[in-house]
């Protein structure tokens, strides 16, 4: 049984058909999504080696949300995430080597092997951190927005979280405060219908998530999260509002999680969802969709696609080697940075 059919979803915002983009911009979006996909697949293929001793939460199928949102941001804008970090981190420009070293628990990991896969950060590109507690980053990002407003910094603050985070009280406390103070914050709800193995229907009444946010007086919309331009344009609009002092926007971006909640592979055979549902959503791949579109418009070709893949593959291999050959922390590293001076 397909519990959540793609075709039955209703969206309140979609990209404008009249909008024209430079080819390089579109190819850039494609490359960014493809790169995230290939990195995820590489991690997945080597996860069984047990050398990446950290949980992994793959974002395969949902790449368009990360890429579309981050394409509308500046480097100085701040991004926070939930446990499913990798797409957000990479789309914002986080160092791949830093991430791979973190997954391999190395001293030179982006969080010095103290964060693991669920707490990546790269301050140099405005990827500000994440929380392994569902919803935990939402107040933090709201506070970042408050800090930016207080210090009169031109800084947009974005937080990615899943559908289940909207079952946590503190996110509504945050949205209430953000609306009250007109904070420059974007709430990006990546709705993939499942919290680990629990479907939406056992967790929430049938009220659209974006409508709940709307009830707090914030701008809100639901978009097709398999279409990167939808995500980009919705975010661009939200950013414009926030930069001009118009306050927060809540974007519910719907896209399916092709893999299990954590670890490698799809676990739908375990019975919590129908493997047919996964297959059905795979027809709406954000990367294939954009690729076909680019081909149709003669903006791209197979040769360029192959060389792009080769380039990404080389980068990935280099990052793995970097991580594998990096030193482990030592016992003396354990007790540093408990307190700040």
């Amino acid at each position: 049984m397909i519990r959540y059919p793609y075709n039955e979803l209703e969206f309140t915002f979609s990209s404008s058909p009249d909008e024209t983009y430079e080819a390089d911009f579109l190819i850039g979006l494609y490359r960014s999504m493809l790169r995230i996909r290939m990195i995820q697949e590489a991690i997945e293929s080597r996860y069984h080696e047990d050398e990446m001793k950290t949980p992994i939460h793959l974002v395969i199928g949902q790449e368009a949300t990360s890429v579309g949102v981050c394409a509308a941001l500046r480097t100085t804008d701040q991004v926070y995430s939930s446990h499913r970090t990798q797409g957000n981190y990479l789309a914002k420009g986080g160092s791949l080597k830093g991430m791979m070293s973190e997954l391999y628990c190395r001293l030179n990991g982006c969080a010095g092997s103290r964060g693991g896969s669920m707490h990546l950060l790269d301050k140099s590109v405005g990827y500000a951190g994440s929380s392994a507690i569902v919803g935990g980053s939402v107040p933090i990002a709201t506070g970042a927005a408050f800090g930016a407003q207080y210090l009169k910094k031109d800084q947009i603050n974005v937080v990615f979280f899943g559908d289940a985070a909207t079952e946590e009280g503190a996110i509504w406390e945050s949205i209430n405060f953000a609306a009250l103070k007109s904070l420059p914050v974007l709430y990006i709800c990546e709705n993939n219908f499942y919290s680990v193995c629990s479907s939406m229907e056992v967790r929430q009444p049938k009220v659209d998530i974006y409508k709940k946010a709307g009830a707090f007086g914030v701008n809100s919309c639901r978009i097709d999260g398999t279409q990167v331009l939808n995500v980009y344009e919705a975010t661009r609009e939200a950013v414009k509002i926030a930069r001009s002092g118009g306050g927060p926007t809540f974007i519910e971006s719907v896209a399916y999680r092709w893999r299990g909640h954590g670890g490698a592979g799809d676990d739908s055979a375990s019975g919590y969802r129908d493997p047919e549902e996964v297959k059905a959503w795979q027809k709406f791949c954000p990367i294939d969709g954009l690729y076909k579109d680019l081909m149709k418009k003669n903006l791209f070709d197979e040769t360029r696609n192959s060389s792009m893949k080769k380039e990404i593959q080389d980068e990935i291999e280099e990052a793995f080697q970097h991580a594998i050959n990096s030193p482990n922390p030592e016992e003396k590293d354990l007790s540093t940075y408990v307190y700040s001076d």
Partner: peptide
């Protein structure tokens, strides 16, 4: 003065503190 949202506002303070206040 604040809303009564103690958990949310503690996180908001932490986020603001991380951002220079």
């Amino acid at each position: 003065d604040t809303p009564l949202s103690e958990e949310g506002l503690t996180g908001i303070c932490a986020g603001a503190a991380l951002n220079g206040t």
